[in-house]
Simulated scan of single mutants.
Amino acid sequence: MNFHTRKWVKPEDLNPNGTLFGGSLLRWIDEEAAIYAIVQLGNQRVVTKYISEINFVSASRQGDIIELGITATAFGRTSITLTCEVRNKITRSSILTVEKMVFVNLGEDGLPAPHGRTEIRYVKDQFKDDMPPQ
């Protein structure tokens, strides 16, 4: 799993216990997962269909730097399934795991549409496809 997105836990992200508010973390995860799905499917019209059990493993406190890791685990005809882990950047200790997140690819009519993808696309490969022949 690649960890690309980093967040700095600030006072406005805390709950009354002085730890990272779960709602803030879930918002960050949903946004990052949607961006990942958009990049993988090549379409800005994707929606969150399903998020499995969320396992909060440990707390994060103000000043911590956390990182979100997301990877595709399956491609359906109109969907992509992802897994997610959030960990402390410095200690590498796990903060949260989500085993399954499903995003659906939509057509211009707002209905599920086939995306034609079957495997993970990496940024280095995407740029190769876009470059003109030399």
Rank of each mutant, 00 (worst) to 15 (best):
G110P: 06
V46H: 02
G23A: 07
T71P: 07
D30C: 06
V102Y: 02
W8M: 08
L26A: 06
D125W: 10
R117P: 03
N2Q: 15
P16K: 05
Q134W: 11
I35G: 02
V39Q: 15
I120W: 05
H4L: 14
Q40P: 01
A74F: 14
I95H: 00
V47C: 04
E108T: 13
V102M: 05
R92D: 11
P16Y: 05
R6P: 04
A33V: 07
L82N: 03
L106F: 06
S60Q: 00
W8Q: 11
L26I: 10
G76N: 04
A74V: 12
S93A: 12
D130H: 14
E32M: 08
E32A: 15
P16S: 01
G18N: 08
I70N: 04
I80G: 01
I65Y: 14
A33Q: 00
A72T: 12
D130T: 15
G23S: 09
S24A: 13
Q126K: 11
E53A: 10
E119K: 12
V86K: 00
N88L: 06
G22D: 03
V9Y: 01
A33I: 00
I80N: 00
S79L: 09
Y122I: 11
T97W: 00
K128H: 14
D129K: 11
P132W: 08
Q134E: 14
E99T: 12
D64E: 10
A33F: 04
K7D: 03
D64P: 01
I80M: 06
P112T: 10
V46E: 04
R117M: 13
V39L: 10
A59I: 06
W28F: 08
V123E: 15
T83F: 07
K89M: 11
R121V: 15
K10L: 15
E53H: 10
G23N: 04
V46P: 00
S79T: 15
H4Y: 12
N88C: 05
Y50K: 11
V9I: 13
K10N: 12
K89A: 13
D125N: 15
R92Q: 11
G42L: 02
R6H: 13
G63E: 11
F21D: 05
K128N: 09
E32H: 12
S24M: 13
L25F: 03
G42A: 03
R77G: 08
M101C: 03
R121H: 14
R87W: 01
P132D: 09
N17K: 10
Q44K: 15
E31W: 03
P112C: 07
G22T: 06
I38W: 04
I35E: 08
Q44D: 13
I65E: 13
L96W: 00
I95Y: 00
Q126R: 15
F75C: 09
K49L: 15
D109N: 15
S94N: 08
K89H: 12
R117S: 08
Y122Q: 13
